[in-house]
Design a protein around this nucleic acid. Structure first.
Lengths: 151, 151
DNA sequence: CTCAGATGATCTGATCTCATACGATCAGGT
DNA sequence: ACCTGATCGTATGAGATCAGATCATCTGAG
């Protein structure tokens, strides 16, 4: 576990991963804030965009948030007119979070800016380096499924 | 931002980094719990081991925790006899967190187990792969300094 | 149809986090 | 010696988080 630039405290790779993930969160969070969103808002909107039709419980699991925590986030997004909860005609228990046109508009803009910011953070590495980097990340995750919540 | 195994939602690398870091937290957290510690406890003990003599404020910044949050953690570690707060004879404002023999003993055991667990998670990659992986992580972090708190 | 159990959304209460405030202490200038 | 401003540790209050309870609804067995 490295602090600053020193050698190992516990597990150097784990600590570096943590630092790098934190750094990228800050970077993409800044892009979201430029459009008046929090990083979490963008993560939620992105999940809805990627996999529409999920229930609130399924959405919570997808983004690794507690269901009650997700509720307050959805409340705020709904208040701001970025999503709405559509009742499912086939199951009156469920409310499907759905993006409004305004929500999709902001989501797309933040996504574009985030993509640029990410590529900027990786600009000093070659395409093959990035590809093997990606493969290693996937390999590390692959073993287990449950993410846990840290957002 | 990938969910599960699908393609990009916002920034694939950022999301993969997040997932990988989370996964490693779970893995090393399990090692800590085997010895009755929480992951955070181990991070704090590791920081004290790596850089002894820090004040509580400096320690909080080192491990990226709010100083008031760190206080309650130190309270618990002190109650359990793993650390003590030594008054600094040169500055009566300061209390230097210091490990007890029991604390150092547990810290060393968790560190050893965590190292094994980390190497196990990386077992399918070559040494040169891991080395370039490490270099890329450092390169990504390098640009900025401030970590922010997510522990 | 009816009942028992499962599931989705929401509420509640306990706990954790963190910005701020505060008292004690230090350092430096006058 | 006496201010002035900064820093350290701690206390406090507002807000976030999460486990568990609750209510409505669905599903499948009998």
């Amino acid at each position: 576990m490295t602090v600053g630039a020193g050698p190992t405290i516990t597990s150097e790779i784990t600590w570096l991963l943590h630092r790098a993930a934190q750094h990228m969160h800050v970077v993409t969070g800044l892009q979201a804030e430029k459009h008046g969103l929090q990083l979490r808002d963008h993560i939620i909107l992105s999940a809805i965009h990627k996999t529409p039709g999920l229930t609130q419980v399924e959405l919570a699991k997808t983004v690794s948030l507690d269901k009650t925590t997700l509720m307050s986030q959805l409340d705020r997004l709904e208040r701001n007119g970025l999503i709405l909860r559509r009742p499912d005609p086939h199951d009156r228990r469920v409310r499907i979070p759905e993006m409004t046109a305004a929500g999709e508009d902001i989501r797309a803009r933040v996504a574009a800016d985030s993509r640029v910011a990410e590529q900027d953070a990786l600009r000093s590495f070659s395409g093959t380096d990035i590809e093997s980097f990606r493969r290693m990340l996937i390999g590390m995750i692959g073993d287990s499924a449950d993410p846990g919540s840290c957002l």
